[in-house]
Simulated scan of single mutants.
Amino acid sequence: MRNAKQIFKSVFAAFFGVQSNSNREKDFTQGKLSHFIIAGVILTIAFIASLVLIVQLVLVNS
């Protein structure tokens, strides 16, 4: 079973396309799908929120 730090690290690597094949195989054999889905949703929301924040900062300063 993988812990939360390992799951977020794995999802983050996969999010940017730098996941190694051996780590991907470990994810499929040792992890639960629901944990990876939840981590993916959280990272997606954080990514979108950071983009919105950056755009707001640029618009305020221009």
Score class of each variant (00 low, 15 high):
Met1Ser: 15
Ser50Ala: 13
Asp27His: 00
Phe28Gln: 04
Val11Trp: 00
Phe47Gly: 05
Ile38His: 00
Val55His: 08
Val18Ile: 15
Arg2Ala: 10
Ala14Ser: 13
Lys9Trp: 03
Lys9Gly: 05
Ser20Ile: 02
Gln6Arg: 08
Asp27Arg: 02
Phe28Ser: 03
Gln19Ala: 14
Phe47Asn: 05
Thr44Phe: 11
Gln56His: 07
Phe12Tyr: 05
Asn21Met: 08
Val58Phe: 11
Arg2Met: 15
Leu43Gln: 13
Leu51Asp: 02
Val41Ile: 15
Ala49Arg: 02
Thr44Lys: 12
Phe47Cys: 03
Ser34Leu: 06
Leu57Lys: 13
Asn23Ile: 05
Phe15Tyr: 12
Gln19Phe: 01
Leu53Asp: 03
Val55Thr: 13
Asn3Phe: 10
Gly17Ala: 11
Lys26Arg: 14
Phe47Ile: 01
Asn3Arg: 07
Ile38Arg: 00
Ala49Cys: 05
Gly31Ile: 02
Ile37Pro: 02
Ile42Ala: 12
Asn23Cys: 06
Ala13Ser: 13
Phe28Arg: 06
Phe12Cys: 02
Val41Leu: 14
Glu25Ile: 04
Leu53Met: 09
Val58Trp: 12
Ile45Asn: 06
Ser34Val: 13
Leu59Gly: 09
Val58Cys: 05
Asn3Cys: 11
Lys32Thr: 04
Val18Lys: 13
Phe15Arg: 10
Ser10Ile: 01
Gly40Ser: 12
Gly17Leu: 06
Ser34Met: 09
Gly31Tyr: 03
Ala46Gly: 06
Val41Lys: 11
Leu53Gln: 05
Thr29Met: 09
Ile38Lys: 07
Leu43Pro: 04
Phe12Ala: 15
His35Trp: 06
Gln30Lys: 09
Leu53Lys: 07
Ser22Thr: 08
Val18Asp: 12
Phe16Thr: 14
Ser62Ala: 10
Ile38Trp: 02
Val18Arg: 10
Phe15Val: 02
Lys9Ala: 09
Ile48Val: 15
Asn21Thr: 13
Ser10Asn: 03
Val11Ile: 04
Gly40Trp: 00
Ile7Trp: 00
Arg24His: 03
Ala49Tyr: 04
Ala39Thr: 08
Gly31Trp: 00
Asp27Tyr: 00
Leu59Glu: 13
Thr29Val: 09
Leu51Tyr: 09
Val41Ser: 08
Ile48Asn: 07
Ala14Thr: 03
Ile45Lys: 13
Gly40Cys: 04
Ala49Met: 11
Asn23His: 05
Ala49Pro: 00
Gly31Lys: 00
